[in-house]
């Protein structure tokens, strides 16, 4: 019974089959239309529960976008879809005009230029801060190459630049395991930057940070925007208020409201489902 159906499908001339499309090998990021990330009608369900419900979201290059929403609104699932960890049931996800994220594996997506910082910092504790950045640096990763590779002065400069950017120049030779929680988070962001990503996904960067550390993180993320596109998922409303240009509010797996912080806060639906709740 399967075969006639297949032939019937094949005879249907109103669609283009994947096999007909040329396979794109390591395509270049194309943002000529002014959008770096397209998510359209993405639906993900887990055992009948719709974590994402026809989510549609566009992000511009160089933007600093904050995604907020109550627990279970689908923030983390959205990140998982973008990085290839979760495959959606339906919808399309494109990185620039040409890179179909749903066709790429996790490492391939990372190679294409999407870096993700997880909630829990996972730096290498026995290596120094410098060595952590060195390990993360984009370049030839083959074993034989690494055995004889020496850092060029250009590479050293890049590491030092990143160190300055994340404010850990003084901790250059410190063991990463000895850093404070906030410093580890910055190092982790630095390690992402060493891979030269075009799009940075940052998951709850200030969870567990002191107010001073939170402030420093806000400065860091604001300074990254422009050069990189940054998407931040965060619970902390004060933090979001301090950095956000554009805020997207998720609710039950789809976009509830989008705009600048003042507009979003004034939106009665948003007030009802999220901001209205006593903080």
């Amino acid at each position: 019974m399967k075969l006639p159906k297949f032939i019937e499908d094949f005879a249907d001339r109103s669609q283009v089959f994947d096999i007909v499309n040329p396979a794109v090998r390591s395509p270049k990021l194309d943002v000529s239309h002014g959008t770096i990330l397209y998510l359209e009608d993405i639906t993900v369900s887990f055992d009948g529960f719709r974590a994402l419900n026809e989510l549609t979201l566009y992000v511009e290059p160089g933007e600093l976008r904050c995604i907020i929403g109550a627990n279970g609104a689908g923030k983390t699932t959205m990140m998982d879809v973008i990085t290839g960890k979760t495959r959606p049931d339906s919808g399309t996800a494109f990185f620039g005009q040409s890179i179909d994220l749903l066709r790429l594996s996790e490492p391939a997506i990372a190679q294409a230029g999407i870096g993700r910082k997880f909630q829990k910092p996972t730096v290498f504790p026995e290596h120094t801060v410098f060595e952590n950045l060195e390990l993360a640096m984009a370049g030839d990763r083959r074993a034989w190459h690494m055995l004889f590779a020496r850092l060029t002065s250009e590479q050293c400069d890049r590491i030092d630049e990143t160190l300055a950017l994340i404010g850990l120049t003084a901790q250059r030779q410190a063991r990463a395991g000895s850093l404070s929680h906030g410093q580890k988070q910055w190092l982790e962001i630095g390690m992402l930057l060493m891979q030269r990503p075009a799009l940075l996904l940052v998951d709850e960067p200030v969870a567990g940070m002191t107010p001073q550390e939170t402030e420093r993180t806000a400065e860091l993320l604001v300074s990254l925007a422009g050069k990189h596109t940054v998407v931040v998922v965060e619970h902390d409303m004060d933090f979001v208020r301090s950095i956000a240009r554009t805020v997207t509010v998720l609710h039950e797996g789809s976009v509830l409201a989008e705009g600048n912080m003042a507009d979003v806060q004034a939106d009665p639906r948003v007030v009802e489902v999220y901001l209205g709740e006593p903080a």
Partner: peptide, 28 residues
Amino acid sequence: RSRFGRVITAIRDGEGRARFMGYRVEHY
């Protein structure tokens, strides 16, 4: 002491992370 050495220590402390960074852990 080589960069290869730093990768193998990274593999010891976080094999999954090293793999995620693009190192072919099994070759090392």
